[in-house]
C-alpha cells in the first residue's frame, strides 16, 4: 500500500473509473472534431463564390 492519495481500494477504483470516463470523453471529442473538420476540408462548391462575386459586381454598378 504505497498509495497515499487513495488509501481505500474503492477510492482507487473511483479514480480509475474517472480516468476511463475522461478517456472516453476525449475520444468522443476527437471524433466530433473530425466529423466537423471533414466537412470543413471539403472543396467549396463553385456557386458559393459565384453568388458572392455576383453580389459584389452588382453593387459596384
Amino acid at each position: 500500500m504505497n498509495q497515499h492519495t487513495s488509501p481505500n481500494p474503492d477510492g482507487r477504483k473511483d479514480a480509475a473509473a474517472l480516468d476511463e470516463a475522461r478517456l472516453r470523453q476525449q475520444a468522443i471529442g476527437v471524433r466530433l472534431r473530425q466529423m466537423f473538420d471533414d466537412v470543413v476540408k471539403e472543396p467549396v462548391p463553385d456557386d458559393f463564390l459565384e453568388i458572392l462575386r455576383r453580389a459584389d459586381r452588382r453593387e459596384q454598378g
Partner: peptide, 23 residues
Amino acid sequence: PAEDDAFKNELVTLIPHLRAFAR
C-alpha cells in the same frame, strides 16, 4: 472598396466552416 474586399476575403475563408455548421 478596400474594406469590402477585406470583408469578402475573410468571409470566403469562413465558407467551409459555415457549411460544416449548417450540415
